[in-house]
């Protein structure tokens, strides 16, 4: 029976307003709430729904990160994943998308899933690369930015959110899907599920175990805040607004 592999990333919670370290060496993450990347949560929700419809029998959730990433994997297990794999990286290590894709490929070769689902991008680095890279290395179809996924036999029909509207693709399985916001609304975790999740298997492996050599090829030399827009003016009515627009030559 079919397996689904879901990849999740531990990121600064989307509600946190990030702060840069004063010396420009990075983003301050100490004492900051960390969560599952929201797009990956959507990916997990979709996998769980597929399994619950009988389209697959097992949902495996995987992540690459420091030991603390176990917290996010436990949350994923509480949402309903059957088991978890953590590929443990050194604290503070940078995992570039190409390394993440290679690592996921190693897991794919081990687990042989029919479907891999991940978020279209992580909200920290905003790279939007890993799913596509995995599909390339695996030499399988990709359907990115999915807003609906229908499975039938060994095929999937996916509607994708693209700049010009909605595009529909048909792909042969196995395949890689990346999620857009409107694919589903992830469930909330209930307390009894958190208790149950503690008993579910969570395996920790290393890059070496998987035969992957992490590479860091992109050097990040400086972090800076975006340029600030100058504070504008308030107008009291439409006439004043039209006057201001005319003065700027905009209407």
């Amino acid at each position: 029976m079919a397996k689904i592999l879901v990849a999740i990333k531990r990121v600064v919670d989307y509600n946190v307003r990030i702060r840069l370290k004063p010396d420009g060496s990075g983003v301050a993450t100490e004492g900051v709430k960390l969560s599952i990347n929201p797009f990956d949560e959507i990916a997990l929700e979709e996998a769980l729904r597929m399994r619950d419809r009988g389209a697959a029998e097992e949902v495996i959730v995987a992540s690459i990160g420091p030991a603390e990433t176990q917290q996010q994997l436990r949350t994923a297990l509480a949402m309903g994943a059957d088991r978890a794999v953590l590929v443990q990286a050194d604290a503070g290590a940078v995992v570039e998308p190409l390394t993440a894709a290679r690592t996921l490929l190693a897991l794919v070769e081990r687990e042989k899933p029919q479907i891999v689902i991940l978020g279209k991008q992580a909200i920290d680095d905003d790279n939007n690369q890993t799913g596509q890279m995995l599909a390339a290395l695996w030499d399988r179809p990709q359907a990115t930015f999915a807003s609906t996924i229908e499975l039938k036999d060994d095929k999937a029909t996916v509607r994708r959110e693209v700049d010009t509207g909605l595009e529909t693709l048909e792909v042969d399985l196995p395949a890689v899907f990346t999620t857009d916001l409107r694919l589903n609304e992830p469930r909330y975790v209930k307390l009894p599920d958190i208790m149950k999740a503690k008993k579910k298997p969570l395996e920790t492996v290393t890059f070496t175990d998987l035969g992957v050599t992490p590479k860091q090829q992109v050097e990040v030399s400086h972090y800076e805040p975006p340029p600030v827009r100058q504070k504008g003016v308030m107008v009291k009515d439409v006439a004043e607004l039209v006057g201001a627009l005319k003065k700027r030559g905009l209407v």
């Binding site: 600064v12 983003v27 909200i123 992109v218 050097e219 990040v220 030399s221 400086h222 972090y223 800076e224």
Partner: peptide, 9 residues
């Protein structure tokens, strides 16, 4: 971070 930081790569 959604444009909240700019990095040099």
């Amino acid at each position: 971070y959604a444009g909240n930081a700019i990095i040099t790569v």
